[in-house]
Design a protein around this nucleic acid. Sequence first.
RNA 1: GGGAGGGUAGCGAAGUGGCUAAACGCGGCAGACUGUAAAUCUGUUCCUUCGGGUUCGGCAGUUCGAAUCUGUCCCCUCCCA
Length: 381
Amino acid sequence: MTRAITFEVTHVCKQSGARTGLLHTPHGTVETPMFMPVGTAATVKFISPEELYDMGAGVILANTYHCWLRPGEDVVAAAGGLHKFMNYKNPMLTDCGGFQVFSLADRRKIKEEGVTFKSHLDGSTLFLSPEKSIEIQNKLGADMIMSFDECPPYPATYQYMEDSVNRTLRWAERGLKAHKRVGEQGLFGIVQGGEFEDLRRHSAESLVAMGQFEGYAIGGTSVGETKETMYKMIDYSVKHLPYEEVRYLMGVGSTDALLEGILRNVDMFDCVLPTRIARHGTLMSSQGRISIKKQEYEYDFGPLDPECDCYTCKNYSRAYLRHLFRCNEGLGSRLLSIHNLRFLIRLMEEARQAIKEDRFLDFKNEFFARHNLNSIDSRGF
RNA sequence: GGGAGGGUAGCGAAGUGGCUAAACGCGGCAGACUGUAAAUCUGUUCCUUCGGGUUCGGCAGUUCGAAUCUGUCCCCUCCCA
C-alpha cells in the first residue's frame, strides 16, 4: 500500500518509556509529540498563517462539518485544497464531523447509514455518512483525514457504547472503501468504547485488523469524564495499537493531560482550549491559568508570563492586555491566542527535549509539583 | 417673565397606591470553557454583625400602606417673549 503518512520513532526515553518521533506528510515532516492548533472553519480563529509559523506550529486542523456548510468542499477544491485556500504551507488534518455528532447532539439523529443534522446555520436537513465525510475530506485535501465516527456522550451505558462502537467500526470499513486519494492523504481510524476496557480493545483491534489506516486516534475523551477515567481510556486504547504507528488523542489540551498522554505514548494532540480561553480572556502561563481581566493587573506592566518567548510576552504588558479585553478590542483575543498556542507548543518542545535526554518522568513530575497539579484529577491549565 | 416636560441604584431606563430593595440594558466584580453553533456562557452587583437596616431630588402631608397621591422648595431640559 502506498502511504501518504509515515511515522518513525526516533527516541525512547529510558526513564519513562515516552517517545519522540517524526511524522512524514506530503507537506513536510513534523516532530512528535506535538500539539495541533484547531482551525475549525479553515482558520485558527484570529491567527494568520505567518503567526502560526512564528510560534512553531506544525500541523493544524480544519473541520469537515463546518467546511462542508461554509464555504463548501467544492469551493475549497476549486481553490486547490485547504492549503492553498487558506494559505497554510505546513501539514493539515481534517476532523471528520464525528465531534459534531456529540456537540450538536440535540439537532441530529444517528442511523446506521449515517447522521442527519439540522443545520445550525439555517435549520436545513443535512446528511453526513462515512462515505460523504470521506468525499468531503478528499476534496478539502488535508494530509491526514479521519474516519467518520460517533463521539459518544459520557456517561453512556455499556449497551449504548457497544452498539455505538460497532456502528463506528462498520463506518470505518465503509470509509476505507470510499477513500479515493490513498497515497495522497492518510486516513486515520478512531478508537472508541468509552470507559469500557473490552470495548476499547475490540475497537482498537478491529481497526488495526482492517489493515489500511495510516494512524490511530483515541476519541471520546474530554467529554465530561474525570482525568482518571480519561487516562484509563487512553491506556485501554493504546495498548492494542501497533507501537510503530502514530497515535492521536483527540480534543485534549490541558497541560496535565498532554503530559500524561505523552507518558502513555500518544504522539499527537489537538484542542480548542488554548484559543477559546484566550478569546475569553484567560491565559495559560507558568503560573497557571490566569484571567487577564482581573482588577489586580490594572497596573501590572510586566509580561503575561515572564518565562514565555512569544510575540505577545516580548512586546505587551498584562495591564495593556487587560485594557484590550475590557474594551472588547480584538487585538486582545489575537495576542492572547498567540500566547496560549505558543505556551502549549513550547511545552511540547520541552517535553521532546526531556525525552531525548531520558528525563521525561522528572520533567513531568517537576511540572506537576511546580503547578500543584494532581496527576489523576486536576483541570490543568 | 410665560408655558411644557422631567429628577429612580455607578450610568441609561421601566415602574405611576400594597405582589417593589425596585424589571431590563450597560458598566463593575467573579467563575466556566478540552476532535469550536463559543470575541461565548453563568453568577453577582444599596448597606448589613444576615436578625435586619436605609432607599426612588429635599422637606411637609394624605393613607392601614407611598418611588407611585397632595403641598412646597431645589435642580435640569425644551418652547414662547
